[in-house]
């Protein structure tokens, strides 16, 4: 009898195998799947630019409208893509639980990592493209920008961890999540600068942790940007860590229920 492998080495080999497999499916699963990843933010920026051009808004909070829109969108997509991809990780990989080495939480963690990496590439390519077009896309404080995007990624991961379990227990929840994504886009300050919203409504909007991440990312690009005064990246990090913890606890609690029918 050969000795069983150590649990850690099994998990590491499962993560590697899942990562390569997910990356293949994500980037080459459909015809030119990687192209659509780039097209989506480009499309959003383009039509919002048209709208802002019509109402003649050339700058928001002291920075160029195009840059303002682009950074907000990319930060928001970092959250949304991670969140929705991770939410579906368990149901998409059901077939693989036929191998007892693969646990539901593995698929979720691997997808978070992959989606974070994919969105980082999309963001960088996008900024490069905008830079070639002549926009000012070199961040004044790169570390602050990374800090804000990283927080958005963590928040997406926490959101996905929780919803991946919840949508298995209550299948209707997947639809509800898709429903709230659109209003979330509105209230997170992707289109409307939150700094112009009067009090007390602004405080209500700032309960949404995503709004803080978007503003922090913009402030990192241009220190002279007029961000909302109540901006607190620590709040976003706290929310992200709490949801990640909650999601991991849910995965621990419902591990057996997720991997079997």
């Amino acid at each position: 009898m050969s000795a069983p492998r150590a649990p850690l080495s099994i998990t590491l080999s499962v993560w590697k195998a899942l990562f390569l497999r997910e990356a293949l499916a994500r980037l080459f699963g459909h015809r030119a799947a990687w192209f659509w990843l780039l097209l989506e933010p480009a499309f959003h920026v383009a039509y919002l630019m048209v709208i802002f051009a019509i109402i003649s808004v050339r700058s928001i909070g002291g920075i160029d409208t195009a840059v303002w829109l682009m950074i907000g969108l990319l930060a928001f997509f970092m959250f949304r893509h991670t969140g929705t991809q991770v939410m579906n990780a368990v149901s998409a990989n059901k077939a693989l639980f036929a191998y007892r080495q693969v646990k539901p939480v593995d698929t979720v963690l691997v997808r978070s990592a992959l989606e974070g990496l994919v969105m980082t590439w999309v963001t960088m390519l996008f900024l490069l493209g905008a830079g070639l077009y002549g926009l000012e896309v070199v961040p004044a404080d790169p570390l602050a920008v990374i800090e804000a995007f990283f927080a958005m990624w963590l928040m997406g991961m926490g959101f996905g961890l929780v919803t991946s379990v919840a949508s298995e227990l209550v299948p209707e929840l997947g639809r509800v999540v898709n429903l709230i994504m659109m209003p979330l886009y509105m209230v997170s300050g992707v289109i409307v600068p939150l700094a112009i919203v009067p009090q007390p409504y602004r405080d209500w909007l700032l309960l949404n942790p995503l709004a803080h991440g978007l503003e922090a990312a913009r402030l990192g690009f241009a220190p002279h940007y007029h961000a909302v005064p109540e901006l607190s990246l620590a709040y976003l990090y706290a929310c992200a860590l709490v949801t990640i913890f909650l999601g991991l606890a849910l995965h621990r609690r419902f591990a057996i229920r997720l991997s079997t029918q």
């Binding site: 099994i10 499916a25 699963g29 059901k94 036929a98 693969v102």
Partner: peptide, 19 residues
Amino acid sequence: GGLQGSLSGRHNAKFVCRI
């Protein structure tokens, strides 16, 4: 179960080898 439809036979086999 145990096969991912969108990937080729080769990639499925590689996955099983790796895990």
